[in-house]
Design a protein around this nucleic acid. Structure first.
Lengths: 250, 250
DNA sequence: TGGACACTACATGTATACAATATCCGGCAA
DNA sequence: TTGCCGGATATTGTATACATGTAGTGTCCA
């Protein structure tokens, strides 16, 4: 992976973390494989201290698992693990939406979300949707989800949602790119966008239970896409991290 | 704090982490205060490398906050933060209970929980309840909650519940000791224990929604106790970590 | 007298040397 | 042939020296 110019300015620890994360998510480091510090030192260019730091952070992130006797290995996930992670993220986002509704969000607070909503409408309106448009959707979707979580105004909750979304296949935008090749891709996006609209409406009207339920169901769209992708066993390249999923028989 | 004999066998990193955690929770290190590595090296006896390791882990644990320019400071929590953390923990435990109910738990699985339930009954039956009995309750309660979470059979969820319970004031047994001095202490324990019984019954009968709702409500008992404790501004010593809570006016 | 700049001191980020320990392989004995 | 023991090797855990950047303080100039 080519070193980006911006990497120069940041710390070795961060650089090592980014570099190792890429290696793990791309599947270059196999699931279950032990990560040798010395080897990581060679590939990242940093010395052992920042590499160790990066390994600890990647463990907390959920990508690595500590080996009892020392060191780390790449974590493997079952299909069930992934589905549970998505459900978990949806539950936390649901809680955030409920908090937002119960605590009230002024029209000033909601204005940027509605603008984001409109932008997504612009993307989804085209038929068929171009690959570029899918990319735009991913970015806008991520922004909308981040803003919805922020609306809870609960730092502890925001923190946990971020952690739950750290795994790429559990993140709100994880499976968007993978579904871009599916025949009913646009329909799915329309449905998801409708859920966006409904949850904001619910928050505006202080309907906590409704907002929570919708966000939970919204996450399950991703779970559905996961199943489709795993069935087809294709487009694995569109979502980094899919290499970490161990299928039932393996 | 006296070093325990068992500390000898574990790594310097873990030793430093335990030592620093105690220092933070006891309030010896003030909220907002920057933690100097050198100072930490002196107090813990370990060298800088394991100390830094411990600091990173304590940040992930939620006790420390990274300073943009480098280093860490002790995190401060508002009353709202604490209440949200409890609600968060309850929500996750609720999800675990729902999973347990939906996925089914055999009577073999439930047997140890019921035994634990009986043991708690034995503790709660006495009137008045001794301080020792409160301690027993804390241990049994922690075990029961751990077993309930395990019943979800979802490693990602178990992981998140553990993280959410890491903050002492968010943990299931956090406020039990603080309420030991309250006049209606026994009644509260009885109510909590009844919720334990109900949630296990719900899981047994595969009533997912009911199990989830009860676990959420169960956590709110802790939130009530928090408010009582903060009102009285007493018994701060009974729950380490209470020193981290900054009251509204401060 | 106030502000800005420079210098100093100190704290953190990084690299590396050293120590302890786990793992692996080979040989020996049952 | 299999299991166990022991040593060699490699890997991680720890300590410390060095580099770099930040913050604080004092002085000088306007």
């Amino acid at each position: 992976m080519a070193e980006r110019e911006s990497d120069r300015s940041v710390s070795q620890t961060v650089r090592a973390q980014l570099s190792l994360r890429d290696l793990i998510l791309s599947g270059d480091l196999r699931p279950g494989e032990r990560i040798s510090e010395l080897q990581a030192v060679e590939t990242t260019g940093a010395s052992r201290t920042p590499v160790r730091m990066a390994l600890v952070r990647l463990e907390e992130e959920g990508l690595l698992e500590a080996i009892p006797s020392g060191g780390f290995m790449v974590k493997t996930f079952s299909e069930r693990d992934v589905i549970d992670s998505i459900e978990l993220r949806g539950t936390l986002e649901g809680l955030a939406a409920r908090f937002a509704a119960e605590r009230g969000a002024s029209s000033r607070d909601l204005e940027p979300l509605k603008r984001c909503l409109d932008e997504i409408d612009g993307v989804v309106r085209q038929d068929p949707i171009s690959v570029d448009a899918f990319s735009s959707y991913v970015a806008l979707n991520a922004r909308l989800h981040a803003m919805l979580t922020e609306l809870s105004r609960s730092p502890p909750l925001i923190r946990q949602v971020d952690r739950a979304s750290a795994l790429p296949f559990a993140s709100p935008s994880g499976f968007v790119m993978t579904q871009s090749t599916l025949p009913d891709a646009r329909d799915t996006l329309m449905i998801a966008q409708d859920q966006h609209r409904v949850v904001i409406d619910a928050i505006e009207n202080r309907e906590g239970a409704r907002a929570e339920a919708i966000m939970r169901e919204h996450a399950r769209v991703a779970a559905r896409n996961l199943r489709l992708v795993l069935q087809k066993k294709t487009h694995f390249d569109l979502l980094p991290g899919l290499a970490l999923i161990r299928m039932a028989g393996e």
